[in-house]
């Protein structure tokens, strides 16, 4: 059973994505990257991200990830911001009922996305 399924699948992640996005919007270290974005589109993308990193069914590719972030490279998007995302991801999953070892596993998977987010 994947972590995605153990945490309650799609209905649980619908609520979790709101929690995750609220954390990002209220964190001054990263909130500026979300100015003037279409919120419905953001929620859909972040839900796909949460689904992907917890082993759920997601149509997620590195190419999409690069494309979604390339306009932020000139705005100073860097490793420290990816760290913030991984931090909030962990907190969201813990609130959803994940165990520490699950979060470590997810963080490892999220880590593999770093090079695409930062265009390396």
């Amino acid at each position: 059973m994947t972590l995605y399924e153990r945490l309650g699948g799609e209905p649980a992640f619908q609520a979790a994505v709101d929690d995750f996005y609220r954390r990002m919007l209220t964190d001054e270290r990263v909130s500026r990257f979300f100015d003037n974005v279409d919120m419905d589109g953001q929620i859909a993308k972040q839900k796909a991200f949460l689904t992907y990193v917890t082993g759920g069914p997601a149509a997620y590719t590195g190419k999409d990830m690069r494309k979604a972030h390339e306009h932020l490279w000139s705005k100073g998007l860097g490793d420290e911001h990816v760290d913030v995302v991984i931090e909030h991801l962990g907190a969201t999953l813990i609130d959803l009922g994940a165990k520490a070892e699950d979060v470590a596993e997810v963080a490892e998977l999220a880590e593999s996305v770093r090079k695409d987010v930062l265009g390396r």
């Binding site: 799609e10 859909a44 796909a48 689904t51 759920g56 069914p57 149509a59």
Partner: peptide, 10 residues
Amino acid sequence: SGCRAGTCCK
């Protein structure tokens, strides 16, 4: 189509 599992909505 995308995820083929009811999440991506493509």
